[in-house]
């Protein structure tokens, strides 16, 4: 339990630091910008209460917002991601809601992890980009931004996941 808490705190600090100091400066013009900090929300342990999940997601988004000067935008996107996470967990994982497992690649199978992160990233970026532009003008441009950013973020997420890949210790 303490181990999980410690790992999550470290993951939070490292991902936020990388996001605001490194990934903020990387982008393909303005069409694609990566937001791999959402990996922190993806990897929160299963079985935490909904209220805690939403609070953590909100605070994570807010921290990124403060560095990006876009107060509320990332927070809203992260809260949406948390709602998606609750929904996805409910329909894919069966009843062991009290055990604390980190849904990382070694624990879950690849197909599950890929669909989990892909749809999550898509939803997060959809809310994020739409709130940032705050209009439906040039909607195809907005859609292109969402799609390309999503691919960018997914690539980085998968690289991270494979870097820290550990083979399943139990069956």
């Amino acid at each position: 339990m303490a181990r999980i808490l410690l790992f999550n705190i470290i993951r939070f600090l490292v991902l936020i630091a990388m996001q605001v100091f490194l990934f903020k400066n990387i982008g393909y013009y303005n069409l694609a910008s990566p937001f791999p900090y959402i990996l922190f929300i993806f990897l929160l342990p299963t079985g935490i209460s909904n209220f805690l999940l939403f609070t953590i997601a909100f605070l994570t988004g807010l921290t990124v917002d403060v560095f990006y000067d876009t107060l509320g935008v990332n927070a809203a996107a992260c809260v949406t991601l948390a709602a998606y996470r609750v929904f996805f967990m409910k329909i894919t994982i069966e009843n062991d809601m009290d055990t604390f497992i980190t849904p990382i690649l070694g624990e879950m199978n690849f197909k599950w992890f890929l669909s989990y992160t892909f749809f999550g990233t898509l939803i997060h970026h959809f809310v994020l980009v739409l709130l940032e532009t705050f209009s439906f003008k040039q909607f195809q441009y907005t859609l292109a931004t969402i799609g390309l950013s999503c691919i960018f973020t997914m690539a980085i997420l998968l690289i991270f996941s494979f870097l820290f890949y550990k083979r399943k210790s139990r069956i």
């Binding site: 939403f54 997601a57 509320g72 935008v73 927070a75 809203a76 809260v79 949406t80 948390a82």
Partner: peptide, 9 residues
């Protein structure tokens, strides 16, 4: 939470 974020935005 979403409402509060929107309020901030």
């Amino acid at each position: 939470f979403f409402g509060f974020s929107m309020f901030l935005v």
